[in-house]
Design a protein around this nucleic acid. Structure first.
Lengths: 199, 199
DNA sequence: AAGATTGATGTAGAATTCTACATCAAGGCA
DNA sequence: TGCCTTGATGTAGAATTCTACATCAATCTT
């Protein structure tokens, strides 16, 4: 089952628990059997859109298609708890930087870098779009982007790529630990990082 | 079929057209049959999440569950600096023309043109694929394609190639210049702009 | 300890997606 | 005009959701 589907499933579960209702209660309101809800939340089924929409409606959620360009900004709004717009500027900068980074990666010369490395970089950059980034994180991103640019203007400078790569990896790790709420989507590490939900 | 599903279907269709690709092209990239895409876009099926996610991925969209409370804010961001909804037809025509141009270049007789010139042409044509092209740009492309065709039917007409070449170069320069000035978050070309082909 | 609630799991069958393939009308382009 | 592309539609069959229902272990409540 794909990453995106599991992410949706986790979001549903989190929303339900945030509302403090049981699967059976949700079942009654949405008209979907409890057994099926269980399977959905566990990512055991590739559910149909109507099921998803129905559950989302009961949970006061709306299904939306957002352009990847704007994902970080949207994510920042959604994640923004009560003191939401404190960090709007950082979010905006992060959005631009991540977009720039994505473009830079797309522009990497395929002759000098293996496809695998490029995909890895792209994956990391896009992963970061799912986090709410602070001002400090933005600095990290700036450095990574600068390193990437260095390599683009001199493709023999492999060190630059490695630096960018390492920077992105470290940033992700830091975020994965600090984020109590947002992390359910990350590839499952050895340790467990969920257990309590939002609130 | 619920309103929400139709809305998603419309979004998919709009995104595809904004990218200027056909249902068959999308089909190839997403691994979903064209016939099925047609049904999806017309709201004739209650598609599965995996199908939706797959199509969204190809279209650079991310499926997201947004809390009703924050919907307006999110919508505002999405509608934001949208440079896309403006000119769907031009984008589509541009895509076709550039593809045609690429084919024409590939068909150039190698006896009459140096390899370097051919590569240069190909590079320029592909570079343009990464820009958002307006109706005026499309006219330029049409002329270039016409000139190219002229040369193809009469390989002694070297002037025609030069005209096409110049047209592409000018178009690229205009785009590269305008893109930097107007907005910071405009789509950047995925390729480097700088000509590195000096003697 | 007894009883209730929660979420996970299973089965059987109906309903629907989804695929592969073919075909068609409409529109663009030569 | 003739050719090609696009999107819509259909058919048959495989795969999967989805429902209804039952059951179970774990956990909370009294």
């Amino acid at each position: 089952m794909s990453y995106a589907i599991e992410h949706i499933a986790e979001s549903l579960k989190a929303a339900r628990e945030r509302k403090g209702i049981s699967q059976r209660a949700l079942s009654a309101k949405a008209g979907v059997p409890q057994s099926h809800i269980s399977k959905i939340e566990n990512g055991a089924v590739d559910l149909r859109l109507s099921s998803l929409v129905e559950l989302a409606r009961v949970l006061d959620l709306e299904l939306t298609l957002v352009p990847r360009k704007k994902l970080p900004a949207v994510r920042a709004i959604i994640r923004g708890d009560d003191d939401g717009h404190r960090d709007v500027q950082s979010a905006r900068k992060a959005t631009n930087l991540l977009q720039r980074l994505d473009d830079q990666i797309a522009a990497l010369p395929s002759e000098t870098l293996s496809e695998i490395v490029v995909q890895e970089l792209q994956r990391r950059a896009r992963e970061l779009m799912h986090f709410k980034l602070s001002a400090d994180d933005v600095v990290q991103l700036q450095e990574a982007s600068a390193a990437m640019q260095e390599f683009l203007s001199d493709p023999r400078n492999l060190e630059a790529v490695e630096q960018a790569q390492s920077q992105l990896r470290m940033l992700r790790n830091a975020l994965a630990h600090g984020a109590g709420v947002s992390a359910p989507s990350l590839p499952r590490p050895a340790y467990r990082l969920d257990g309590d939900d939002h609130g």
